[in-house]
């Protein structure tokens, strides 16, 4: 599949589903064009429609899922912008630009190990579905702080899933990276497993270190504050191996070797 840049459009879309999933809010809206074009790991710039100036800018969010005409997002209401989106009711309109950025690249037949931390699990849903549709073996490691966030594991029904919580309230106690090395060995007759990860920076750094130590290819989806989402403002940069990289246009998904992890 092509993970490249695809024409994007600012759309005003009606919310048709809004429900709580543990600590997170799940909203769906009708956007046939985005649903049709979205590649796993791509993101949208999204805000409530209207003239409100605070919050001012749209928020970048990974696409959680698409289903016929519907696009679904998972929201962690941590700040003003996300809280406002999480409060969207059915019939409210959201303004959406996307799909944007370079998503996960997948070729070949290697078993896929998906690693998600907190709200970083969101884009792994569409990824897990797409990989499975291509006949890839998929296993998810989903890490959360507590039981409240871990409720979102229900969104991954039908996928082989291990849950890890920092307080041990559900699943294994510890960090999501703890069981990762045990999932990376090459099985006879199969290619070496490939890692796809999304989550907070310390988690991604741990994934990068483990991937290097165990000799597995790994792609990570990075989060950054953005103003435009389309390469204009140069605000979302991270340190790359050869200089700054724009998360919006060069990413948000990067090969671990392309990022400077110091």
């Amino acid at each position: 599949m092509d993970a490249g840049l695809i024409p994007a459009e600012l759309l005003k879309c009606a919310v048709v589903e809004s429900r709580q999933v543990g600590a997170y809010r799940l909203i769906s809206f009708v956007a046939p064009q985005i649903a049709n074009l979205a590649h796993p790991g791509q993101f949208l710039m999204i805000r409530m429609s209207g003239n409100e100036l605070d919050p001012l800018l749209p928020r970048p969010m990974g696409i959680h899922n698409v289903e016929s005409d519907l696009v679904t997002m998972l929201i962690d209401p941590v700040g003003k912008g996300t809280a406002r989106l999480a409060a969207a009711g059915i019939g409210d309109r959201v303004s959406v630009l996307g799909p944007l950025g370079m998503g996960f690249r997948f070729e070949g037949e290697a078993p896929a190990v998906l690693v998600g931390g907190g709200i970083g699990i969101s884009p792994l849903k569409l990824l897990a579905r797409s990989l499975a549709a291509e006949g890839r073996e998929v296993r998810c490691l989903l890490g959360f702080r507590t039981r409240k966030e871990a409720v979102a594991t229900e969104l991954f029904s039908g996928v082989r899933t291990d849950v890890i919580t920092e307080d041990g309230s559900v699943g294994r106690l510890g960090l999501v990276s703890d069981p990762l090395p045990g999932c990376l060995a090459r099985e006879p007759g199969k290619p070496t497993p490939e890692i796809f990860a999304c989550g907070p920076s310390p988690m991604l750094a741990a994934v990068a270190r483990i991937a290097r130590e165990c000799g597995n290819a790994a792609q990570v989806s990075v989060e950054a504050h953005m103003a435009c989402g389309i390469g204009s403002c140069q605000g979302c940069v991270i340190r790359g191996a050869g200089g700054y990289l724009r998360v919006c246009n060069d990413g948000p998904v990067f090969d671990v070797e392309d990022i400077s992890w110091q």
């Binding site: 605070d54 919050p55 504050h225 340190r239």
Partner: peptide, 23 residues
């Protein structure tokens, strides 16, 4: 110019703070 170290953006009340640094 490479520009300034990240983070380079912070939204404030009806405003945006940036420190891109003429990248």
């Amino acid at each position: 110019r490479a520009g300034n170290p990240p983070p380079r953006l912070q939204e404030t009340a009806a405003g945006l703070l940036n420190s891109i640094g003429l990248a």
